[in-house]
Amino acid sequence: MKSISVMTPCYNEEGNVQEVYQRVRAAIAGLGPGYIYEHVFIDNASRDNTWAELRKLAAADKNVKIIRNTRNFGHIRSPMHAFHQCSGDCVIGLVADLQDPPEMIPQMVAKWEEGFPVVVCVKTGSDEHGLMYWIRTKYYRLVNRLSGVETYENFTGFGLYDRRVVDAIKSMRDPYPYFRGLVAEIGYPHYSIEFHQPLRRRGITKNNFYSLYDNAMLGITNLSKVPLRLVSFAGFLGALLSVCLGFAYLIYKLVFWKNFSVGIAPLVIGMFFLASIQLVSLGIIGEYIGQIHTQIQDRPFVFEQERVNFEYPPGEPLISALTEIANEERKA
């Protein structure tokens, strides 16, 4: 039997975890015999009843494995920690808000069986606000153009990853990884499955401006040195422009000595222009220094408060149940 791990990060998703579990279970059952699975949930210190709901699921089904963090470690570190805890022959990552349809699992597994170590699910449309979808699309395109490796546009991380890919990602030991960039960096052959992303039906999104900005800058600084090169280019361009303007003013002053008065306005405008260039440049450099600082700290992804059902290998309760049924049939 082949084992499949499904990983779902949660934060204040009490209204969704039951349905996610049921739909994942139904999707795995639809694969037929020959597959066992585990469903790993990680709760990022939710403030609602998410953990209580997860404990109910874990008590009823030993294939459900749950982790609770000591605090909220953010939308980057918590999912990666759960990803590292998965032990299946392949790992499927999907979010708890049901915008990643679990019904696509059989398609992903079928392509995995055909020999693709990476199966990525790519959005071709979304029911979210049109402006937000347009901004996301342009961002993915920008990252792809700036990056030194080819990335997958409109790919959020929803997909299937073979154990070889999982082990390769774990070997990188990045304490604050850009997951989509890591998958592209490894370079294994992939297959893209297109889907239309539905709206969140329950709860509210946990993404705010800061988390979106953090993820955007993480993608750019992890995959590209182009912004740093632009800083250098802006410095050279500004110096060249200053020299040219200085010579132009000097010549004009020599020709029209008595009639030309420079005034203070060009001086003030020039100072503000140079100051703005310096601030932007410092900001870009600061983003890269921040990434270096994070890498040097080399802290764990999260600290756990509790974990449940990890003493069971993937699918062991299911195998035990099937064995008991077979033994009873023999006795009968």
Rank of each mutant, 00 (worst) to 15 (best):
21 Y>T: 07
322 L>C: 04
170 K>W: 14
61 D>P: 01
65 K>L: 05
99 Q>I: 13
9 P>T: 02
67 I>H: 04
226 V>N: 04
178 Y>C: 03
264 I>L: 15
62 K>P: 02
75 H>D: 11
206 K>P: 02
216 A>F: 14
270 G>R: 04
38 E>H: 03
302 V>S: 00
126 S>L: 06
275 A>F: 11
82 A>E: 05
9 P>S: 01
154 N>G: 06
259 N>W: 10
63 N>P: 01
264 I>K: 11
164 R>S: 10
119 V>N: 13
250 L>K: 13
125 G>L: 06
29 A>D: 04
152 Y>D: 07
115 G>Q: 09
265 A>P: 00
193 I>Q: 14
330 R>F: 08
37 Y>D: 03
175 P>H: 02
102 P>T: 11
64 V>A: 00
307 R>G: 02
301 F>Q: 02
195 F>H: 12
302 V>L: 02
56 K>S: 13
110 A>T: 12
65 K>I: 05
3 S>F: 05
67 I>W: 10
55 R>K: 09
212 L>D: 07
285 I>R: 15
37 Y>W: 15
216 A>V: 09
297 Q>H: 11
95 V>P: 10
238 G>F: 04
98 L>K: 01
56 K>Y: 13
119 V>M: 12
61 D>Y: 08
330 R>L: 12
20 V>L: 06
316 E>H: 08
230 L>F: 10
249 Y>E: 12
228 L>Q: 07
213 Y>C: 06
189 P>C: 04
312 Y>P: 01
277 I>G: 05
272 F>A: 03
297 Q>Y: 02
151 T>Y: 07
185 E>W: 08
158 F>A: 02
179 F>C: 01
132 M>K: 15
96 A>L: 12
313 P>A: 08
94 L>F: 01
298 D>S: 13
182 L>N: 07
294 T>C: 11
159 G>C: 05
46 S>I: 01
37 Y>M: 11
168 A>M: 04
148 G>R: 13
60 A>Q: 08
91 V>S: 05
65 K>M: 05
240 L>N: 08
223 L>I: 08
272 F>T: 03
252 Y>G: 02
28 I>G: 02
222 N>M: 12
209 F>N: 09
212 L>V: 11
57 L>D: 01
124 T>I: 14
315 G>W: 02
92 I>E: 07
287 E>I: 06
177 P>M: 08
192 S>C: 08
280 V>L: 10
240 L>C: 08
112 W>C: 08
